[in-house]
Design a protein around this nucleic acid. Structure first.
Length: 267
DNA sequence: ATGGTTGAGAATCAA
């Protein structure tokens, strides 16, 4: 089973990129974040001719929005809201593996959190911390239902030193502050998650999935961060078959600022 | 410390 997560930063202006990704990499399931479109305006036939007949669109006008496109039928699928807001930041679907057992795929777009890393001074940062706290709580309950989960998406936190271009220079920059990393760790502990990407890429190796639009040359400056993640529950750990950050996509025409990430499972 | 760019959708807001 091949799964891909990608913060597309508007699906409508990047239809070609989505098609290119689907045809070149053939994921069974594509989870998108920041589609920035209301459900009724989501491109109707996106991926249909390539076999992606199953979809869950959880859109929103102008902001946020997540979607799941799949070649595999859904056993169940559900959009969810968090923190009492009507932000579309989470959708999940379960699909059957080759072993006939279901896997629950959770697609998240965690709030970015604004510029000031202080929940007292910045409501967006407070919301981010609350969102992560709710995620941890929710998965504590959810784990009672199944032990085969994949959690993926733009979690907007780069937890490890080598998940950012400069640990020292980013300690006070939203996405890499200790308080966010701590909040993310609480989620990580909520279902004994395994970081599927770091399972394959050693902790001392720098790895990024996002590069700002503001650099003159993103590759040359390479001031990236690893904001996009794949986690799996322990029952899937021995099914992990490989990961890849498709950083080439950051150089495509009119790129998203995030690269797609691919996970292969022996399922 | 600052400014740099992109997208939605119509003036900013968010990232």
């Amino acid at each position: 089973m091949r799964i891909c997560t990608w913060n597309i930063n508007s699906v409508r202006i990047r239809l070609d990129q989505v098609m290119r990704l689907l045809s070149e990499h053939q994921p069974d399931i594509l989870c998108l974040q920041e589609i920035k479109v209301a459900n009724e305006l989501f491109p109707e036939n996106l991926g249909e001719e390539l076999g992606y007949h199953h979809r869950l669109i959880h859109g929103q006008k102008a902001y946020h929005g997540v979607a799941i496109l799949s070649r595999l039928p859904f056993v169940k699928a559900e959009p969810r809201y968090w923190c009492g807001k009507e932000d579309s930041r989470h959708a999940w679907a379960s699909v059957k593996g080759a072993d006939g057992k279901a896997v629950e795929l959770h697609n998240f777009y965690v709030p970015a959190g604004g510029d000031v890393p202080d929940p007292e001074a910045n409501d967006k940062f407070a919301h981010k911390l609350q969102f992560l706290a709710e995620m941890a709580e929710w998965f504590q309950e959810r784990r009672k239902k199944s032990n085969r989960f994949v959690l993926m998406g733009d979690l907007n936190v780069a937890p490890f030193e080598n998940d950012v271009w400069s640990h020292k220079q980013l300690l006070k920059v939203v996405s890499h502050t200790p308080v966010e990393v701590e909040a993310l760790n609480k989620v990580y502990q909520s279902h004994d998650w395994v970081d599927a990407v770091r399972h394959f890429v050693p902790a001392d190796e720098k790895l990024f999935s996002w590069w700002s639009y503001r650099a003159r040359d993103w590759q040359e400056s390479n001031r990236g961060r690893r904001l996009d993640h794949f986690w799996v529950t322990p029952a899937l750990k021995d099914k992990l078959a490989g990961v890849e950050v498709l950083s080439d996509a950051r150089s495509w025409q009119k790129p998203s600022d995030h690269a797609p990430v691919i996970l292969d499972l022996d399922l």
